[in-house]
Design a protein around this nucleic acid. Structure first.
Lengths: 363, 363
DNA sequence: ATGCCGCGTGATACCGGTATCAGGTCGCGA
DNA sequence: TCGCGACCTGATACCGGTATCACGCGGCAT
């Protein structure tokens, strides 16, 4: 019953514990803080008093005094996306194991929200943070630069940012995309739709413009485009802007765009989706067109999930090592915080194509 | 270029800004803190100095001094579950709009983790928190009680806890389950499997034991069981322990259990799943048994999602107002923090059965 | 010219910890 | 018996803000 603490209003402080135990403040602090020396007898008294009062150290005060918060920040695009949820779990599992809490913030792919999130983390004095940034070019990284200048360690996850010289933990996006598209090509497809998401209002007409556009897009998507082109090039299939979607990758837009590609005189016989929501969007378009996969259209997408396996027929998908991605990012960050010289390199993890039954030869 | 701050090591403090501006510390504090009076001229100087130095207030120090952190805590079972992800988004959207940050912690359905999470929030001195607690009986709520005794406002979300007299924001679980099972019964089903998750090792043999078990289970699942029984009772269908699954609702276990129910001499012709992962688990069992829905087995589950709509045939599911659930919980908590007398009531939101094509009469 | 009032400003105590350091006690050797 | 050192303990400065309060200065009334 910690209620009889006299006039004290808030939670018990170390001074109150000291008074209760009849010792000096410093002695109580040493006992409870686990530093310095305290005789067994006094230690016992302090512990008993703390127990009685229900004392818990004020982490804010401690951080103020020591300058470290034992807290990591995490900024992701959307925590509701199973991909990021998995990454976050990887981060919190390993950071918790090393005594760090995590504060997770979602930006919902909005750069202003990302800046705001960064400021929240700076203000709360996290010891470092991990970010899957929506920033692409130099003009968009000021907030991260600002954090770096304050001496806050930063690690990028999922998305590398060319304008930033930082550790980044990513997967082999280009290779993964290439492998998927090669699988489609090997099955005999030549008209392969590409569901992409650069900010451009319409599809670039030429390869050159396409690549230019790629550098204005998220790094992951840029890489995936390169993988798509790699596979096309190897098979000497000409690039056709008509079968690549541009603009925001919402499920609705994907449905419209795939429907458009399906209505083309020379319609697509396969689709490659760079995101899981794009897969459901594409599937809706197929159904609306009265088409079935893999018979009429073959399909491969990014980010495997449980439902992809129970679809009938089950979907061939690219599986990303989400937990490892997060765990590795946390590890690199924690090492940097611990003082290990930052290497500032790109840590590339391998993804895996899970072959199921959504790919068949074109009809 | 905030680099020429002299010998200062960390980020700039208010004293440094004051010195730079050539004013007293208090004046700089008043300007930057937005309180008290400062003449336009000095204000201008302070602002310029802060800008030049890249000053950002230390939220920790501010909280120490004022006693409020403008931060809400959120404890959910699994942020990777789209249901909780939606709830969290609802919470952060409305709390951000009212000037509060949120710290989200996942317990992965482990009570010890929940206790640890609660302590983290207490230690970080959040102004209040929202929790979807895994606690069921009196012996498991000590950590929440402790927070309440410290004067920290707490609001429950998704799961009410009988042992706690607190505001709770939930949906009409019992009614939702009843409606779903009634739909199954209306289609002609009498053997309806129930995928449930009480801690019991085996299915209770009698109704009485079942209900007793329900009170040892998560509140939501208890209510959903009652809804299931309500529907059975109304149709005078006897309860059969053989068709209710008990124990942890992992996807693998669901698959095994549904397979068992499918192998019964008097096999089930319909399944009701109280969770989205249970739906995929059940679907796997169907496929393994060479059965198709809705022809061989009808199916309804909790938590609608995009993929449920693109399944072939599309799934009939219960949609929960996830965002509203979170928004309402945040609202109630924020009001309590703001000093409005807490009402300690149950706020019930309506769910909705989305009828698609996974229910047909038994063959 | 003097006194009073009020406004604007800066000095300072405080929040609850950490960490340094001074001082008191005790034991042991000379 | 005295002195010195080791060992504990408690007093206190500090972290970076907030908030109270005292003080100096100018203006106005008398």
């Amino acid at each position: 019953m910690p209620a009889d603490r006299g006039r004290a209003a808030g939670p018990p402080t170390i001074s109150e514990v000291a008074r209760e135990a009849g010792v000096g403040r410093a002695t109580a602090a040493r006992t409870l803080g686990g530093y310095g020396y305290v005789s067994p007898e006094l230690r016992e008294r302090v512990l008993a008093a703390a127990e009685k009062l229900g004392y818990r150290a004020n982490a804010l005060a401690r951080s103020m005094s020591t300058g470290v918060s034992h807290t990591l920040g995490v900024i992701v695009a959307d925590i509701g996306n199973p991909f990021f949820a998995g990454v976050v779990r990887g981060i919190s599992d390993t950071s918790r194991a090393r005594g760090f809490d995590t504060i997770v913030l979602s930006t919902y792919e909005d750069l202003d929200e990302e800046v705001a999130a960064t400021n929240v983390l700076i203000d709360k004095r996290v010891d470092g943070f991990i970010v899957a940034s929506a920033a692409v070019d130099k003009g968009e990284v000021a907030h991260i630069r600002a954090a770096m200048e304050r001496g806050i360690p930063v690690v990028l996850v999922d998305r590398a940012v060319a304008a930033l010289d930082l550790d980044a933990v990513v997967i082999d996006n280009r290779e993964a995309a290439r492998e998927a598209v090669e699988t489609l090509i090997a099955a005999g497809h030549r008209r392969i739709g590409f569901v992409w998401g650069p900010p451009a209002p319409e599809a670039p007409a030429t390869r050159r413009e396409l690549l230019a556009e790629a550098s204005r897009n998220l790094w992951t998507d840029g890489e995936r485009l390169r993988g798509y082109l790699d596979a096309l090039d190897d098979a000497r299939i000409p690039f056709d802007p008509e079968v690549v979607m541009v603009g925001r990758k919402t499920e609705e837009r994907v449905t419209q765009e795939v429907a458009r590609m399906l209505a083309l005189p020379d319609r697509i016989t396969a689709v490659f989706c760079t995101e899981t929501d794009a897969v459901t969007g594409a599937l809706r378009a197929l159904r609306a067109a009265g088409l079935a996969y893999p018979r009429d259209v073959a399909l491969i997408g990014f980010d495997d999930s449980s439902w992809a396996a129970v679809m009938e027929p089950p979907l061939t998908m690219i599986e990303q090592p989400v937990h490892e991605l997060g765990a590795k990012a946390a590890e690199v960050l924690l090492d940097t915080i611990a003082g290990t010289e930052p290497r500032r390199e790109m840590h590339t993890l391998r993804s895996r194509l899970i072959v199921r039954s959504s790919v068949a030869p074109p009809s």
